[in-house]
Amino acid sequence: MPSTALAAVPNSSFKTSVTSGYAPLKVTFTYTGGSTAGVISHIWRYGDGATCQTCWNPYHIYLKAGTYKATLTIKNTSGTSTTAHYITVK
């Protein structure tokens, strides 16, 4: 009999190389959610209007002071998951 088990909702966990610093601030984002098998789509939003839909472990340079909500959203056939971290640029 074929398996009817559904894939688990994806894990969108990630870590950042830094959470605060002075502009221009380079932040490396590292996906820590495990396998990307079955992922339909994903998008990084850096909180300043910039995004990336093709990268898994990108970096981003923040040019202006402020607090930015950086998110990773991942979608598979079972659902969508979003994780956020805040970056403070002085």
Rank of each mutant, 00 (worst) to 15 (best):
T36L: 13
N76Q: 05
G33C: 08
K15E: 15
Y86A: 12
T73N: 07
I61S: 05
N11R: 03
L6V: 02
Y31N: 10
V18P: 04
V18I: 04
Y46L: 11
T51R: 12
Y68E: 05
T71F: 07
N11F: 02
K64W: 03
G33T: 10
S81L: 06
A37C: 00
L63P: 06
A50Q: 14
C52E: 13
I61E: 08
T32D: 12
L63S: 10
T30K: 14
A7Q: 09
A50E: 14
H60G: 06
T71M: 03
K69H: 14
T32Q: 12
P10M: 00
G38H: 03
H85N: 15
K69V: 13
V89W: 03
L63Y: 09
T83S: 14
S78R: 04
I87K: 01
Y86Q: 13
Y46A: 13
T28Q: 07
T71E: 06
G21D: 00
T19V: 14
H85V: 09
T83M: 11
S20N: 13
S17F: 06
N57H: 15
A7D: 12
Y68N: 02
G33V: 10
G34H: 00
G33H: 08
G21P: 07
V18L: 07
I40K: 15
A8E: 03
W44D: 12
P2D: 14
G49N: 01
C55L: 14
T80I: 03
R45P: 06
I74W: 04
S78E: 06
N11M: 01
W44A: 10
A7M: 07
P58L: 07
